[in-house]
Nucleic acid binder design. Structure first.
Length: 656
RNA sequence: GCCGACGUAGCUCAGCUGGUAGAGCAGCUCACUCGUAAUGAGCAGGUCGUCCGUUCGAAUCGGAUCGUCGGCUCCA
């Protein structure tokens, strides 16, 4: 007999050689059915693995996050099995689990795998799942003698150099080779797996893309087939529904449908905001301006183009060159006007600002400062340009020019803690305005490419950490992900679809004030170097707008809607009254339009609904006579006839 | 940047194996004067992303290029 320990502190007696599966059935039939795998002495392993005496055992069921990974990894095996049946020439590379599912990288010496083949592959996977083959772990003691290994070698033709490479690596590390078999299929794998393929009924292939062997562009091109798997039909359906919902909310599509912005081939990654998009954009900016003013910020406006020399001083030239746009001069030949000299060497080469900080430093340096005016807070809705690799541009989320709601605090080292705490409260309040209350905070530390001594970095990192700890704020640490001039705190917010977006950032900087020779006069009458805090709350206004479009699915709350009310006359006879109502709304600062086109009321309402306008107002004979309006709310449908004053009151309540 | 797919009217898309482009919506005009998600009729609209090539002939085939979309930390 052996004894094993359970997480609740209790112990169980089992016959020698018993497995975790035996333990589960001893505890109860329900658990025996629900158990997926086990954690034995902190190692995740198969249910069938024999337990040793004194082991600490935790059984995993579908509720445990580890279990979902195991399920998905098993599904990757099933995918590989199915693919080999349909494409016998395929060679398997690797098949790991990723955030929302799994993938398998496959080498196709001829042909390819396209989404058209998905139904066939999925049908094969479903069949294999129904057959409920047990996953069997095989340890390979001697490759040449082992029967399972011989089968494994034969499984995709015996010439699979990818697996061969992996086996060599494992042997080089002196580790044991293990295989997993289900039915006829054998794959090199560390495991663990679900007990049998019967668990894998709810799998779905989602995408196919290219990838390289070992992520090396010089190595073989592989086909990466993505899929996902869940324990139950409901969860799979919900996941697919969420993907569909995210697709429908795509801000690039809504941006076009709602006439908010567009992109041009002539200006890749530079959005053109239309009137409605610009309205929302400006509302975001105005909202922020008010909040900043109440917190004692001074708003600046600094140039877009500054000399290259300045970027040498700031360190951007050495650390950020690849992301910067530089000006390039062209000159007409003095003698021949038709000849243009390209790439003319400029005496003072210029660059577009990728960040606002050096500009703010120059404003700071324009006069002397005293500790009495600290913390000094300079803000700017700063338009910055950053070059991005062509493949990473993405709607408003990744552009090449964007507006930062940027600010820099100049303060003494002692003031850092209070400033950080103020900012954390401030940022949370801002996100709350949009119903974005799920905020996660991350602390990022020194990256490889960076400025300043270890001592300064340690000081800065502990200052941030100290402020977070003192405020009792929960956060996680991101090693090596800081800015090149200092460590930072990032704010990640979850939208209504539970997707996470990085928005706000607070960055500590001990080196830029020093490089630029910024000083202040302290209480001791001597000159000191101030600390600089870089911070942005929306991050990029463009990107934040994109997030809001998706968060609200284009249905902006009334206070943020580009057009709040559309006035519609029932027919041409009531145009005059419609105009009058429109004017009254305009006078009350409502963003309103009037639709006087020669169309049916129903048609105009449909148009307004598709534009997701919060309100339409219909006026006809009744309203003209009674001096009233009949509103229809986007969210509540048709409302009762009311006076314009009553309608305005309703709007005011909503706008507050 | 790399890999893959895609690029036809303002939008969504059709156009088989090469023979000179089509629909719906939007737009415009006219009629209807209309009560809460599409009134009807007519008109107009395209160097088929761009360049080069193959061909008697290219939206269609080949190459390059630009752009868009998806993917590119994940190492059994």
């Amino acid at each position: 007999m052996i004894q094993v320990h359970l997480p609740d502190g209790s112990a169980r007696e089992l016959e020698a050689g018993s497995s975790a599966a035996d333990l589960a059935s001893q505890i109860g039939p329900g658990l025996a059915r629900a158990a997926v795998a086990a954690v034995v002495d902190d190692e995740v392993c198969d249910l069938s693995r024999p337990l040793s005496d004194g082991a600490q055992v935790r059984l995993l069921t579908k509720r445990d996050p580890e279990a979902l990974e195991i399920l998905r990894h098993s599904a990757a095996h099933l995918l590989a099995d199915a693919i080999l049946r349909i494409f016998p020439q395929a060679q398997l590379a690797i098949g790991p689990v990723v955030e929302d599912g799994f993938y398998y990288d496959i080498y196709m010496p001829d042909g390819s795998i396209t989404p058209e083949a998905f139904p066939q592959i999925e049908a094969e996977m479903k069949r294999l799942a129904k057959e409920s083959h047990a996953f069997e772990r095989c340890q390979v003691a001697d490759k040449d003698a082992d029967e399972a290994f011989a089968r494994y070698r034969a499984i995709d033709g015996g010439h699979n150099k990818f697996k061969h490479e992996i086996v060599q690596d494992i042997e080089a590390r002196g580790e044991e080779i293990t295989l997993y078999r289900h039915g006829e299929f054998v794959d090199l794998c560390r495991g663990p797996h679900v007990p049998n393929t019967g668990w894998l009924k709810f799998a779905k292939l989602t995408a196919v893309s290219g990838a390289y062997w070992r992520a090396d562009a010089d190595r073989e091109q592989l086909v990466r087939v993505y899929g996902t798997a869940f324990f139950g039909k409901g969860e799979l359906k919900e996941h697919l529904h969420r993907l569909e919902e995210a697709r429908k909310r795509d801000h690039r599509m809504l941006g076009e449908q709602l006439d908010l912005f567009h992109f041009e081939e002539e200006a890749p990654g530079f959005p053109f905001f239309h009137a409605k998009g610009a309205t929302v954009f400006n509302l975001l900016v105005d909202t922020m301006r008010n909040l900043l003013r109440r917190r004692g910020y001074f708003e600046l406006k600094t140039p877009l183009v500054l000399s290259e020399k300045l970027w040498h001083v700031s360190g951007h030239y050495d650390n950020y060159l690849e992301n910067m746009f530089f000006t390039k001069l062209k000159l007409r030949d003095e003698k021949d006007a038709a000849t243009i000299h390209d790439n003319v060497e400029e005496q003072r080469p210029m660059a577009l600002k990728p960040m606002n900080c050096p500009g703010h430093v120059l404003v700071y340096k324009d006069r002397n400062h005293s500790h009495n005016e600290f913390p000094l807070r300079f803000s700017e809705m700063g338009l910055v340009h950053r070059r991005e690799l062509s493949g990473v541009r993405h709607g408003l989320f990744r552009v090449q020019a964007f507006t930062q709601d940027d600010a820099h605090h100049f303060c003494t080292p002692e003031q850092i803690g209070d400033e950080i705490c103020m900012l954390i409260d401030f940022f949370r309040e801002v996100y709350g305005l949009f119903g974005l209350d799920d905020v996660r905070i991350e602390l990022s530390t020194r990256p490889e490419k960076s400025l300043g001594s270890d001592e300064i970095w340690d000081q800065a990192e502990s200052a941030l950490q100290g402020a977070l700890d003192a405020g009792g704020i929960e956060y996680q640490v991101n090693e090596g992900d800081g800015a090149f001039y200092g460590p930072k705190i990032d704010f990640h917010i979850r939208d209504v679809l539970k997707r996470s977006w990085q928005c706000g950032t607070i960055q500590l900087d001990f080196s830029m004030p020093d490089r630029f020779g910024c000083t202040y006069v302290g209480a001791d009458g001597a000159k000191h170097t101030p600390v600089m805090i870089h911070r942005a709350c929306y991050g990029s206004v463009e990107r934040f707008l994109g997030i809001l479009i998706e968060h609200f699915a284009g249905r902006f709350p009334t206070w943020l809607a580009p057009v709040q009310v559309l006035v519609i006359p029932v027919s041409a006879k009531f145009i005059e009254y419609a105009r009058e109502v429109h004017e009254q709304l305009l006078d009350a600062d409502v963003r309103t339009e009037v639709n006087l086109k020669d169309d049916r009321v129903g048609y105009k309402i449909r148009e307004a609904s598709l534009q997701k306008l919060p309100y339409v107002i219909v006026v006809g004979e009744r309203e003209t006579e009674n001096r009233t309006v009949s509103p229809r709310s986007r969210d509540q449908g048709e409302l009762d006839e009311m006076t314009v004053a009553a309608f305005l009151e309703r709007l005011t309540e909503e706008r507050a």
